[in-house]
Amino acid sequence: MQIPPVFIDVSLEDQAVELRSYFKGLGAEISEEKSPKGIEDDLHKIIGVCEACFKEGNEAEVELVLNDIVSIMVLIPLERCENIIMAFCEKLVKAPGQKIGMVCLRVLWLLFQSLDESSTIRYNVYYHLVLIAKQTDQVKSVFQDIDHLKQQFVKCPPTNEQLQKLYRLLHEVLLNCEESEQAAKVMIELLKTYTDKNASHAREDAIRCIVSALADPKTFLLDPLLSLQPVKFLEGELIHDLLNIFVGENLSAYLKFYNDHKEFVTSQGLNHEHNLHKMRLLSFMQLAESTPELSFKVIEKELQLKPEEVESFIIDVLKTKLVRARMNQAARSVYVSSTMHRTFGRAQWQQIRDLLYAWKSNLSTVQDGMKQVTATQLEFLNQA
């Protein structure tokens, strides 16, 4: 991105003097004289009082002034400017109100894009961008998905500790914005940053990951969580037992667990009614895997529904697109054409393999048939 000019044909020092004078005019405690210690000291002092412009309420002017500071800052060698950049980030995070917060978000994004891609300070700027995005409810303008995030740091990847700190923040922000699916993906990435050596230290992160996945109404494939090393360290604990129920057990197993551990489920911030609905959906999927035709009576019994609740439940199932089926109200039954598997292991891969082989065999048969038709037509033309 092109860096915006500040004052054309004016030295950095004179530009700093102009900014000093501007903030002095706003009543900030700053001298109008340039610092004898150099431009870095000038910027430190300017940034120290830059919040004075926030009080003006003129977003366009605030953005212009802050961009002026950025355009001076990025012209100073980075090794002399890291502390200045951090101080600037801290000031912008404290900006009051939605409108000024949005200005600060744009200014900090400009700073982030203006920094060299191999610079380690870009991580700190991005972290503060997420903080401001949290305050302004604008996370989508900063974070698109995990792949996009990784692309931002190809030339200078953050350390594991930095990634863990960032992922925790992103997870919190995404949950607050009701982006539960992205939040779950971020949490899985967080757990992947732990190795066998330090996975035992990831206990709280692993619990949060499980709880988020269970609470997310759009997450149904929970089996991959069991392979994450930090989750494995929870084996034998109630949260791991509950995860296993959602991975492969039925509604009755969940109800037994809930009756035995009501306080635990509540303490995790999980809603029992939401859990019930999700387990019914998962149990239906399990039934549909082995029985393509399900009567209302079987659904009512297995999912512990009242007779008048069955039809509306089936409609809820179809809305999730987890199952393809048609409902025959006259026959009081459901005909399932396909369903998503709750777990995806060796048996499912074998099933895909068998389907592909069958597809290949059918194609060969069609090809042989076409060859025979073509040969017959050629023979007929030759005879004519």
Rank of each mutant, 00 (worst) to 15 (best):
Ser11Trp: 15
Leu12Ile: 10
Asp14Ala: 11
Glu18Phe: 14
Glu18Ala: 02
Arg20His: 13
Tyr22Thr: 04
Phe23Leu: 03
Gly25Tyr: 01
Gly25Pro: 03
Leu26Met: 12
Ser31Phe: 05
Ser31Met: 06
Glu32Asn: 05
Leu43Gln: 00
His44Ser: 11
Ile46Phe: 02
Val49Lys: 09
Val49Gln: 12
Lys55Glu: 03
Asn58Trp: 06
Glu61Lys: 14
Val65Asn: 03
Ile69Arg: 08
Cys81Lys: 07
Cys89Ala: 08
Leu92Pro: 08
Gly97Val: 07
Gln98Ile: 01
Val103Ser: 12
Leu108Met: 13
Leu108Gly: 10
Leu110Val: 01
Gln113Lys: 13
Leu115Tyr: 06
Asp116Arg: 14
Arg122His: 03
Tyr126Trp: 10
Val130Met: 00
Val130Thr: 08
Val130Gln: 00
Ile132Ser: 01
Asp137Leu: 06
Ser141Gly: 14
Phe143Pro: 11
His148Asn: 01
Gln151Tyr: 09
Gln152Phe: 04
Val154Glu: 13
Lys155Tyr: 11
Glu161Arg: 07
Gln164Leu: 05
Arg168Asp: 13
Leu170Gln: 13
Val173Leu: 00
Val173Phe: 01
Leu174Trp: 09
Leu175Gly: 15
Asn176Pro: 04
Cys177Asp: 14
Glu179Lys: 12
Val186Ile: 09
Ile188Arg: 09
Leu190Phe: 07
Asp205Pro: 12
Cys209His: 03
Val211Gly: 04
Pro217Ala: 08
Lys218Tyr: 10
Ser227His: 08
Phe233Leu: 03
Leu234Thr: 11
Glu237Cys: 02
Leu238Tyr: 01
Leu238Val: 04
Ile239Pro: 06
Ile245Met: 11
Ile245Gly: 02
Leu251Arg: 06
Asp260Gln: 13
Gln268Thr: 10
Gly269Val: 05
Leu270Val: 02
Leu270Gln: 08
His272Tyr: 15
Met279Pro: 02
Gln286Thr: 08
Leu287Ser: 04
Glu293Gln: 15
Ser295Thr: 15
Glu300Ser: 08
Lys301Leu: 07
Glu302Ala: 13
Ile314Glu: 14
Ile315Gln: 07
Asp316Thr: 05
Thr320Trp: 01
Ala325Val: 00
Gln329Gly: 10
Thr339Leu: 04
Met340Cys: 12
His341Arg: 12
Thr343Ile: 10
Thr343Val: 08
Arg346Met: 00
Trp349Leu: 15
Gln351Tyr: 02
Arg353Pro: 04
Leu355Cys: 07
Ala358Ser: 09
Ala358Arg: 02
Asn362Lys: 08
Asn362Leu: 08
Asp368Val: 05
Met370Tyr: 15
Gln372Thr: 08
Leu378Glu: 11
